[in-house]
């Protein structure tokens, strides 16, 4: 070990101080929302004057919060269907790209990832115009189609990373031993790429559940989505039920994250 000079120490101190502020800014708001959701006050006062479960009770009240429940169920249904369709489409495409050496595969991969760089709000508006041009009334299926386009690149990246590490010799052995392509897929390919598929399904699900720009244009009174409903509740009268809903969403996301991290090492997968 070498000795730190005074200047080095100062630099290290500044770095650690800024990192601490960064950490606080990342984590603090989540904790503050959790505490606020137990407030006894009608206002968003912090620190809360007292702690109760009243906003959670109100949030789960089937009559007073009926609209929120409809929106939440719509969001869960759309997110589930989006996760299925995005993962299926991405798995096929990722296998094709990973198993092909031709130049078109690199080009196709770039094109498949294009929705990532496009502002969601432009795509949301474009989808609204497209479906209205086709005279399609608002429906949850249109939302699934729109969300799938946004979610597929996430799944494509995680499945692609798994598929790239696959040993081609295993596939050839399976074929030589007489397995049909489908059997090879089920018994050899799928188990090998499963961590990537699971991570992709999870990311697609979360991306759909949180989607704002597409839902903003494609949802309607009948196909209300949770983020849009919560946005409405924040824009008009500030409703403390939003804090309770946030508490539920944060807890759900945290539990899912821990489960996925245990199962497929999600934190590792997301930083590559």
């Amino acid at each position: 070990m070498h000795r730190l000079t005074g200047a080095d120490r100062l630099v290290a101190l500044v770095i650690i101080a800024l990192a601490a502020i960064g950490f606080l800014i990342l984590v603090g708001p989540v904790l503050i929302v959790l505490v606020t959701s137990f407030t006894s006050s009608r206002a968003l006062r912090f620190p809360p004057p007292g702690l109760t479960f009243r906003w959670y009770l109100e949030l789960f009240d089937p009559v007073r919060s009926a609209q929120i429940h409809v929106a939440a169920l719509n969001s869960l249904l759309v997110a589930t269907l989006t996760a299925i369709s995005a993962t299926a489409l991405a798995t096929g495409a990722a296998l094709a790209v990973a198993r092909t050496r031709a130049g078109w595969a690199r080009f196709a991969e770039g094109a498949f990832l294009a929705p990532l760089v496009l502002p969601g709000i432009a795509f949301g508006l474009a989808s609204l115009m497209f479906f209205s041009w086709l005279h399609q009334p608002p429906s949850l299926l249109l939302l699934v189609a729109g969300h799938t386009m946004i979610a597929t690149p996430f799944a494509l990246r995680t499945v692609g990373a798994s598929a790239a590490g696959m040993d081609a010799a295993l596939l050839e052995s399976s074929a030589v031993l007489g397995a049909s392509p489908w059997r090879t897929f089920r018994r050899v390919v799928l188990p090998l790429i499963m961590p990537g598929v699971a991570a992709g399904a999870f990311l697609s699900f979360v991306s759909s559940l949180d989607n704002v720009p597409v839902s903003l244009f494609l949802s309607s009174a009948q196909t209300d989505m949770l983020p849009i409903r919560l946005w409405g509740m924040m824009e008009t009268a500030l409703d403390v039920r939003v804090a309770a809903a946030s508490g539920v969403l944060v807890t759900g996301a945290f539990v899912l994250l821990l489960v996925m991290d245990r199962a497929v090492g999600l934190t590792r997968r997301m930083s590559v």
Binding site: L26, V206, D210, V212, P227, V250, F254
Partner: peptide, 8 residues
């Protein structure tokens, strides 16, 4: 964690 808590 913030990435998984919705933007809203």
């Amino acid at each position: 964690l913030p990435l998984l808590t919705s933007v809203v």
